[in-house]
Design a protein around this nucleic acid. Structure first.
Lengths: 229, 229
DNA sequence: AGGAGTTTGTGAACGTGAGAACAAAATGGG
DNA sequence: CCCATTTTGTTCTCACGTTCACAAACTCCT
């Protein structure tokens, strides 16, 4: 059932590594842009903000693309990582929910340059439909199925209010979308085989607040306690 | 050095747990809003999208706030988690970089309702300064120090282009900000004691793309291989 | 009051990820 | 041609996180 082609020996890349590959890709692009053609694991690790042992281990899951005593060819490694991630061609993406965040996402040029193409903007509200955002006309949410079939879309982005998120996700899944990026502050449940990643702005801030509070309490305790038990 | 007040026995909450507390908080708020006053770990776990054993273990790090045979009092647990995270009062926040994303962040009502107050919007560009966004006038980036001192700001949000991110971060750190939420697609380096969390839209999509590609390859291999080695 | 039924809190087993340390492989100089 | 130097790829160990499984503790009904 899990037998594969031929050349991939133990092609199981840990999830933690997968999450870092895009960071390496970006770092390599930055290096290439500044004219650097070769780099050591140490160089790249610094650029990516990780330690070099971890970087080498991550890259070793992909294959053996470096040269001992020399380092990595920037362009070659960049292509290999892009291929592994699957962004050597563009992925069509639909964005549902064109509020403040949807606008920002539609206008974000980083998608285009990093392997994604926004093929449609959808919204359920009459007042938004028909508007042109980032050069694309917003279409009614009902057109989702038609668009997905036409462009063979596998990835959907949810930027609606929280209450609508689960409905939109259900609809996406029913139509055949198998990867969802959810910006709505709500948990969406999906069946086996569908991937969901969530980005939640206030959760990130709350995590920072927790650590911030601890810093403050620690300082306060140190000041009043004086270190004694 | 690490001695604390009195009642906290082993107050070391794992990072993975800290990252989930805001999710529980949101789920509890949703339950409270629908009039539910008591819930079991199973109920809450479902609402939060985790399994109940993990939920109970997470909560056990905070203390023993449930009642065996009964469950958790929604309001009480909600308060305890909010207190632990540190969002019983509002945290002042500054946003630097008022482009598309900065606009969306400034308009995001979720910050306000979840423990944060945007006290200033800053941008370096003359063309943006003076505009009113979400009822707040955009001020020049130079005013950062003044604003941070006036409002005792500890948390900064970076929504600038990638090239500006490190400079903005350096300036924030120099002025005394100790927590940074970075939306710019760049790695920012900060000294010990400063927390940085990053949110990168295209990285999230690339992670989805990786899995999507694997799904496609798996299906393709299964179709051509027929299952035999 | 006592027992049946629930549900929490936690100890123990398991799996995954991180980091140190080193052997293998390449280059370049003499 | 050989040796010193550099840097990768990998092994081993430790720490962290997840899940299972169950005892402790509470309620409710008789």
């Amino acid at each position: 059932m899990t037998t594969r082609s031929s050349t991939d020996a133990a092609r199981v890349i840990p999830e933690a590594t997968v999450a870092r590959l895009p960071v390496y890709l970006r770092a390599l692009t930055a290096l290439a842009d500044s004219g650097i053609r070769t780099c050591s694991s140490e160089d790249l690790a610094t650029a990516a903000g990780v330690n070099s042992a971890k970087l080498r281990k991550d890259l070793s899951y992909l294959g053996s693309y470096g040269t001992r005593g020399v380092g990595y060819d920037v362009d070659y490694l960049r292509y290999q990582i892009a291929r592994e991630i699957g962004v050597t061609q563009d992925w069509p993406v639909v964005i549902v929910g064109i509020g403040n965040l949807g606008h920002a996402l539609a206008n974000y040029s980083g998608f285009r340059s990093r392997g994604f193409r926004v093929v449609a903007l959808l919204d359920a509200a009459e007042s938004v439909v028909g508007q042109s955002v980032a050069g694309v006309v917003v279409r009614p949410f009902d057109h989702l199925e038609e668009i997905v079939r036409e462009h063979d879309v596998a990835i959907g982005v949810i930027a609606t209010p929280a209450v609508a998120a689960q409905d939109v996700a259900d609809r996406m899944v029913a139509i055949g979308i198998t990867s969802i990026l959810n910006f709505a502050p709500a948990v969406v449940a999906v069946p086996e085989g569908v991937d969901v990643r969530k980005v939640d702005l206030s959760i990130e801030l709350q995590i920072l607040a927790y650590h911030e509070q601890r810093k403050a309490n620690g300082a306060e305790a140190a000041a009043t306690d004086g270190g004694a038990a």
